[in-house]
Nucleic acid binder design. Structure first.
Length: 423
DNA sequence: TCTGGGGTCCTAGGACCC
DNA sequence: TCTGGGGTCCTAGGACCC
């Protein structure tokens, strides 16, 4: 039995989400900015055609944005998350074996579909997703995940492909590999691409033809897996259930630089609180908490990068407890006289919450904390994130991000209410 | 003025043990 | 004073992904 995978990828996902709800944007260049309105993280085809680069700082593209009346949006993750769920639900109609790989991509197991008209089937998926959600997608089909990724990439490049490319024929696969730069292969980043160029390996085909020993020596077993996948040998299975996270991080750059301990405490309290909520959602407790601080590396100012990790006496997912330890870590870290640009909280050594070893010296009433947290999560899930918070999280939030061009949360009731309230 | 955020996996090397 | 093998655990650093 030969394996067969489809990779379905939403085209310019964030930009497409913005466009679904505002038909006037059809045919216009659109960009979406990262948190803090810093970098460009999504572009419509029209924006790509203007030469605007992925990851480019927004200020560098200012001229071209003004000249061509590019529509600019702050990122709106509530909207994108909701649209993503709709796309995934639609795809699930086509096969029960679906792996949600990222917010805008899914792998489908088509192992039983050999002999069918795969092009036709993929077109049907495309049309259905477009009709039901308004989001355009591309489909790549091939015997391995890595080749399906590659097929998907090429399907977007050719007009003739019309958003679908099936790579099952060996001759077609070879031609596709020849036309793909090695750095565009899934799993080959900038560093490896550079290194490989030094050995005369420039295309995916060159890499496929390299020896196992060479690949293992220079790119570890991970690289070898990629090469085998390029040869059509499936090494990566579908992951039907998303594994729980082993680390959870919440961090942000500040809208403006922050110097005072009290403001950092407020920001850190918010990040710790978000981490705690994420922990409870996956029913985990953390054994350790890390706080880090960074100044602005792009400025010619005194720099300070540091982090502090505290092992918790008993693993926990209580907001109150994590807030306490985050604050201890921050106080140990904090140095006066710096202009901080970014801070964050990482919780690690995660374990299932029902397998936490209680300590004999434990002074925390864990049942009480748990009941309180359940009530908190219930309120916030009904009324919106951060409707109920701890006092330490503050209310003024001078450190908060900039997001000046955010679209309404069209798809969620509360988003609309909030928007009306704010607007 | 303005430069994202959140993850995973692998390896090498040191500390320590028998 | 010299000489091992074999194993585990931890950490830092480097690579990658979206």
């Amino acid at each position: 039995m030969t394996s067969l995978f489809a990779l379905v990828d939403c085209n310019n996902f964030y930009a497409s989400c913005e466009r679904v709800f505002d038909p006037k944007l059809e045919g216009k260049p659109i960009v979406v900015l990262s948190n803090n309105d810093g970098c460009i993280i999504a572009r419509s085809n029209e924006a790509k055609a203007l030469g605007i680069q992925m990851g480019e700082p927004a200020f560098k593209a200012k001229d071209v944005i003004e000249q061509h009346d590019v529509q600019v949006f702050s990122s709106n993750y509530t909207l994108y998350g909701d649209m993503s769920a709709r796309v995934m639900q639609t795809l699930a109609q086509f096969t029960p074996n679906l792996e949600v790989y990222s917010i805008d991509e899914a792998f489908l197991d088509l192992g039983n579909f050999y002999g069918r008209d795969l092009n036709h089937y993929a077109q049907e998926m495309r049309n259905t997703v477009k009709t039901w959600t308004g989001i355009p997608v591309s489909v790549g089909i091939a015997p391995t995940k890595t080749l399906a990724k590659l097929a998907n990439r090429l399907s977007k490049k050719s007009k003739k492909a019309d958003g679908v490319l099936v790579l099952t024929d060996e001759r077609h696969i070879e031609e596709a590999l020849r036309r793909t730069e090695v750095g565009d292969v899934w799993g080959i980043g900038r560093r490896y691409a550079q290194k490989l160029a030094g050995f005369g390996i420039h295309t995916a085909l060159d890499l496929r033809n390299a020896s196992d020993a060479f690949v293992k020596k220079n790119m570890t077993v991970v690289g070898l897996r990629t090469v085998r996948e390029l040869r059509g040998e499936a090494c990566l299975d579908l992951e039907l259930v998303a594994p729980n996270k082993q680390n959870i991080c919440t961090s942000r750059s500040f809208g403006q630089s922050v110097s005072s301990l009290s403001e950092l405490q407020e920001a850190t309290a918010n990040y710790a609180s978000r981490c705690a909520a994420k922990l409870r959602r996956q029913k985990s407790c953390a054994g350790a908490i890390t706080v880090f601080l960074q100044t602005n590396q792009f400025r010619d100012e005194p720099q300070y990068f540091n982090s502090k990790t505290i092992a918790l006496p008993t693993a926990s997912n209580s907001t109150l407890e994590l807030l306490h330890y985050a604050n201890l870590a921050l106080q140990a870290l904090y140095r006066e006289g710096y202009k901080y640009k970014k801070s964050g909280v990482i919780v690690s050594e995660l374990r299932p919450q029902n397998q936490v070893q209680a300590s004999l010296l434990d002074t925390v009433d864990r049942d009480k904390h748990q009941r309180l947290m359940q009530a908190l999560d219930k309120l916030n899930s009904a009324w919106g994130r951060d409707k109920v918070t701890c006092a330490a999280q503050g209310t003024t939030r001078p450190w908060q991000l900039k997001c000046e061009k955010k679209s309404p949360c069209y798809t969620t009731r509360l988003g609309q209410l909030l928007y009306v309230g704010v607007g």
